[in-house]
Design a protein around this nucleic acid. Structure first.
Lengths: 89, 89
DNA sequence: ACTCTAATTAGAGAAATATCTAAATAAGGC
DNA sequence: GCCTTATTTAGATATTTCTCTAATTAGAGT
């Protein structure tokens, strides 16, 4: 959990591309999967890792699962690395 | 090479800790290794991955190899991620 | 309840990663 | 040239990661 899961999640190019796609707004698992040549189950595993790292959040809409980007976790992880850690204001 | 190598390098906690140590200034391989319980050859492999990603640069001083942090690659990769502009992989 | 669509979980195999010990390389001093 | 120190490279093994197909879960409509 925590920072390890975040950097582990960021280490795979497909997962970074998923984040990139979500930058344009929330998308369903199926819509995301269409952007790749990988099988849906494979993509589903990538989604699970992003979710475990809390880089994305998921919400059900009917039979679809909609993923959205969680920017704050990303900022937190990266600023931790750079030690931009600001004292509490 | 490129962005893939950078995020792959950042994915391991030991390598992130090496970068943190180097933030305090350049250090030799041996001095870095003292901060870990891992064997020197293992650390050497971690150094090699950081070097391949160009997150560190190395310079010889006598029998010692001195590692330096390359902040610009780090900033480039992280800010690239934040703005989701991934350079060609 | 049955069926259709959307997506995940399970199981398996291949490929990559991390770690160790032992051997090799490089530089400096005698 | 030989020895010592510092570090890397090689080889082996255990663990983890990635990917697939097949099976399962979940919801909506009829």
């Amino acid at each position: 959990m925590g920072i390890n899961a975040v950097f582990e999640a960021l280490s795979h190019p497909v997962r970074r591309e998923i984040l990139q796609l979500l930058r344009g707004g929330p998308m369903s698992a199926g819509a995301l999967a269409e952007h790749f040549t990988l099988s849906k189950p494979t993509l589903s595993v990538h989604f699970a890792k992003l979710k475990e790292a809390e880089l994305v959040a998921v919400e059900r809409q009917g039979t679809s699962l909609i993923y959205h980007l969680n920017m704050s976790i990303l900022e937190e992880a990266l600023s931790g690395l750079m030690s931009f850690k600001e004292p509490k204001s």
